[in-house]
């Protein structure tokens, strides 16, 4: 009887061991040729790929279709970071896990780039003046700096500097890429400025405060249903306020984002004449979008189209 128990127990232990070792095989294969760069989430991935071109291999940590606010790295991500050359993250509070992860790493050669460095951070209060002050947002910054194309130039410059630090040999190549995309960002910026300055309405209702930089740059007025992260429960008083605002100002579109639940936006649109539409804060792209070859520029242009049809 006792023997039987021991056999069963040891079988169990064996099974657990096998399943653990089975899992470890999905770490990234060694590729000695190229520089290994890890990026925290999609915009960082996109910008880094654009600067690094074919000189680097870039791995995105937050998988496609995942909302980065509530993502946390798995053990395999940490293992991969130990082998990486460069790690790019946005900063400004977007990746709450970065500090903890970096302090545990033993990889002394890892170069870390905080892409948002040098960008003037905006507070997250919305410009919608009502008599209550929402002081629970106070002291926090909006981390979505990339919603203003000119900020992306700064982020790309930071990334370029990081790459040059590791790989001075290809400095010219990185600088060329930076120049190229810097010009494209200027074009995008002009498109935004040109289109939005012709629009009559300036109020956008969005599901979470992700567009402070875009609003600041182009004179939009962002009214957000809830705070800095999507998918938190809104309070009914705030919802009523927004419904009144939508009715009073004749707002035609309530924006929600692809990676979060549209429930709240739907509830507000139901009550008013407004419809719902997507305004993408580009926190991540879905598999479908990636297959279609979408990137930062194409999604921003889609956003501009959505804005111009909403604010006409």
């Amino acid at each position: 009887m006792k023997k039987k128990k021991i056999i069963i127990l040891s079988l169990l232990v064996l099974m657990i061991l096998i399943s653990i070792t089975g899992c470890s095989s999905d770490t990234v294969e060694q590729d000695n040729e190229k520089i290994k760069v890890y990026t925290s989430f999609y915009p960082m991935y996109d910008f880094t790929s654009k600067i690094g071109g074919d000189k680097i291999s870039v791995y995105n940590m937050v998988p496609s279709g995942t909302e980065p606010h509530d993502w946390e790295p798995a053990a395999s991500d940490i293992v991969n970071l130990e082998k990486a050359d460069l790690f790019v993250y946005n900063g400004a509070g977007m990746e709450h896990w970065v500090e903890n992860v970096l302090s545990t790493l033993e990889n002394k050669d890892l170069v870390v780039v905080e892409a948002s460095q040098g960008i003037e951070l905006l507070g997250s209060e919305d410009h919608h003046d009502h008599d209550h002050d929402h002081d629970h947002y106070h002291g926090e910054f909006d981390a979505h700096v990339w919603t203003d194309p000119l900020n992306v130039k700064i982020e790309m410059e930071n990334i370029m500097k990081g790459l040059i630090q590791i790989d001075p040999y290809n400095q010219e190549y990185y600088e060329e890429n930076y120049e190229k995309y810097s010009e494209e960002l200027d074009i995008l910026h002009e498109e935004f400025e040109g289109t939005i300055s012709n629009l009559t309405n300036r109020d956008i209702v969005v599901s979470h405060m992700a567009f402070s930089y875009m609003s600041h740059a182009y004179g939009l007025n962002q009214i957000s249903i809830d705070g800095l992260t999507p998918d938190s429960e809104p309070n009914p008083g705030r919802m009523a306020e927004i419904i009144d605002f939508v009715k009073d100002n004749n707002i035609k579109v309530i924006f929600f984002e692809e990676l979060a639940s549209p429930k709240i936006a739907d509830a507000i649109a139901n009550e008013t004449d407004a419809v719902v539409d997507v305004l993408n804060p580009i926190e991540g792209l879905s598999d479908e979008e990636l297959e279609n070859g979408d990137d930062y520029f194409s999604v921003m242009r889609k956003n501009l189209e959505a804005l111009s049809s909403a604010l006409e």
Partner: peptide, 22 residues
């Protein structure tokens, strides 16, 4: 939840709120 590709979908089912009922 680690296997769910589209978290938007997942969140919209996870998330229930008495003030946003369809």
């Amino acid at each position: 939840s680690g296997f769910v590709k589209n978290t938007a979908n997942f969140n919209s089912f996870l998330f229930g709120s008495i003030v946003a009922i369809s």
